[in-house]
Design a protein around this nucleic acid. Structure first.
Lengths: 128, 128
DNA sequence: ATACAGGCTGGAGTGGGCTCCAGGTCAAGC
DNA sequence: GCTTGACCTGGAGCCCACTCCAGCCTGTAT
């Protein structure tokens, strides 16, 4: 698959895809005779992984470290597991934060609902 | 309260607090005779609000817009409400994303658990 | 033959959100 | 009276994660 197809499919610009390759997040993508990238299943899986992690805001640097370890083979399995555990923990914390903010927003919105209602009431009595 | 006290209490550096003031996120803080900021309840409430919103990743620009509206008085209530509704919606989406990534992480971690277990088994049989 | 789309590269630029710094003022303690 | 430390200012610098660009190449359509 060409870069533009991948781009469309995953909502990442070609520039971003090349950038990920440049910084070592994706292994050098195989090229055809005229130097054009031809993404295979391997790269696609990697991109899906990255996309998922990035949507949760996990930094590129963390992903690079993880992938570097993966390259080094089975000796790094427990280190990689550690990274995943850490990230999971951080996501849990982040979810809690989001939930708190969400609760606060709900609370404020309720207050605004009342305010809007009162404003309408005032308007009615003005017209009366 | 002095800037350093606020800084400690909310985990924002004095630089960040002054920065928020500079960009109009906090109204100019009252000063004592020698020009030193003296934060009052009003500012503290504002800072708590900002802190909460920022933890959920709501952009400074959005907060500035909201606060600009609040300054303009009651005519802007329903606009402000709209902003809050929008942010709530975005937070809900973000939570879903995080949950998905979390699920994926759980799944990967399980695979790693097995791999670590197998590695230990191999080690035992080597020693046997 | 040529125009054009789409790819390539290296490197510069951008936007968000801080963070750091030089150079200055001031109040308190020694 | 001098040092120290906390504060002040304007402005520069930094990190992250892209994003854009000039200048070049190539395969395909007209």
């Amino acid at each position: 698959m060409k870069i533009s197809e991948i781009s469309q499919r995953y909502g990442l610009t070609p520039d971003t895809l090349r950038y990920y390759e440049k910084i070592g997040l994706i292994a050098p993508v195989p090229r055809n005779a005229s130097g054009i990238r031809n993404y295979s299943e391997d790269e696609i899986k990697r991109i899906e992984f990255i996309k998922c992690m990035r949507r949760a805001g996990i930094p590129l640097q963390t992903l690079i470290e993880y992938i570097e370890l993966a390259k080094k083979g089975d000796d790094t399995i427990s280190l990689r597991r550690e990274i995943l555990l850490q990230q999971r923990e951080q996501l849990v914390v982040k979810m809690r934060d989001l939930q708190e903010t969400l609760n606060f927003l709900e609370y404020k919105i309720k207050i605004y609902d009342k305010a809007v209602l009162n404003a309408k009431k005032d308007l009615r009595s003005e017209n009366a």
